[in-house]
Design a protein around this nucleic acid. Structure first.
Lengths: 233, 233
DNA sequence: ACTAATTTGTTCGTATGTATG
DNA sequence: ACATACATACGAACAAATTAG
């Protein structure tokens, strides 16, 4: 086993054991290199590999830092943000930026099976984990099915709870599509990250009782969340 | 409905109908604006929205172009690149950059259920659709189970076929994790895109007959693929 | 290698219609 | 009725990147 590999393994296990918590600044490369008794190039080889794995990141002139361990977010048939995050032992939160009712757009109409001119409720906001933003969402609901939804959304913390108040006891994902984009300036500000950082974009359609009930677009901060897929076997 | 919205809808439907095939350069903004009888700002508002949706992209000094429609890539229990792409009516391809055998790394050992010191075969390369690169992959196999794999991989076009030659007739995904990173310089060159463009990174584990058979890392060009999830109902 | 023409990107200014309270 | 705020639309000019000759 090469020197850089054993150093990488060493650091990896130390990070895994919590010896260097997320956000910690590692000692300077020169310092660490002398501790391991290797040349700075050798140490850099190890940290570069860990950075590729997403465990570390470096900022020129600032230092090498331990990346925040991303939240695992399972994308199953019944995706519920609050439950998912609580099951992972973290604190879920949501900030509602806007709730409005407006005519459906062309692409939304196709997705939800509506006609031009029909109205939709739109909820926009930010999802948080441990009081840090992890995602932006824009969710669209057919207004005719859910006349009371805007009010309920403002009262309740979770979308699931608001839908339940409107008589939608259960709903299921029928399709999920995943792609990625880099954050623009507006998204970066809302998510407290730098523009150009990658976002995972999911487009989800849910139905209940034969009607499309929800079309949700979510932009996840890639470095703060890992989407996991169901493999029912 | 505002002017820019109807222009956007018009262009959207024209693109959907194939009137402007992927890669086509649209007429210059000034030209298009005069055709629609609007100011250039108004036209730009429409094209900006379509660019946000991923239907168009613009290059200063060059023009506005119709984006190549991304390939839908289903992530199910039995993921087979060649079959998936052919089913979408496109031409799959693979370029093998390297096949080697080396000791397993720490994280690979955990994933595949191996011990330190065990050997793995590694296959690295580029996946293509319609002769354009869409993804980088690095796939790792336990060497003890598949002594002949390196030779087979070099002979055959698809990993599925090579595994079949080694007696693995069938294998299933047991876990898939999705996150995103921006492309570094090396990845950008291999994938023929600009550094800083977002990549979707999937980490997949597959098993066959009770043994982990494969751990595949794939970096997808986000603008050229959309990952779709199974929702078995 | 250089220039000129073309094309998108950005920033001024101005005006109008439409909700809101 | 009025003031305010916001989105929409037009006009002009210039900057920056690309392409053609």
């Amino acid at each position: 086993m090469s020197l850089w590999q054993s150093i990488a393994d060493n650091l990896r296990s130390e990070i895994a054991r919590g010896l260097w918590p997320p956000g910690t600044k590692l000692p300077a490369e020169a310092e660490l290199a002398s501790r391991y008794g290797v040349n700075r190039h050798t140490l850099r080889h190890a940290t570069r590999v860990l950075a590729d794995e997403g465990l570390l990141y470096s900022r020129r002139g600032a230092g090498v830092f331990v990346a925040a361990s991303p939240v695992d977010y399972p994308l199953g048939d019944r995706v519920r943000f609050h439950r998912n995050i609580e099951l992972a032992g973290r604190v879920p939160g949501r900030k509602l930026d806007a709730v409005m009712t407006r005519p459906v757009s062309a692409d939304e109409a196709v997705a939800l099976g509506l006609n031009i001119g029909d109205k939709v409720h739109v909820a926009e906001g930010i999802s948080m984990v441990d009081f840090k933003p992890v995602a932006l969402f824009r969710t669209v609901f057919p207004a005719d099915l859910l006349p009371d939804l805007p009010g309920r959304l403002r009262e309740r913390q979770s979308i699931t709870a608001a839908l339940s108040d409107c008589g939608i006891a259960d709903y299921r994902r029928v399709s999920t599509r995943v792609t990625a984009r880099v954050a623009d300036a507006t998204q970066a500000v809302k998510l407290q990250l730098d523009p150009g950082e990658p976002l995972l974009r999911t487009e989800a359609l849910s139905e209940s009782g034969g009607r499309m009930i929800e079309r949700g677009l979510t932009w996840w901060v890639a470095e703060r969340v890992t989407l996991t897929l169901p493999h029912d076997s």
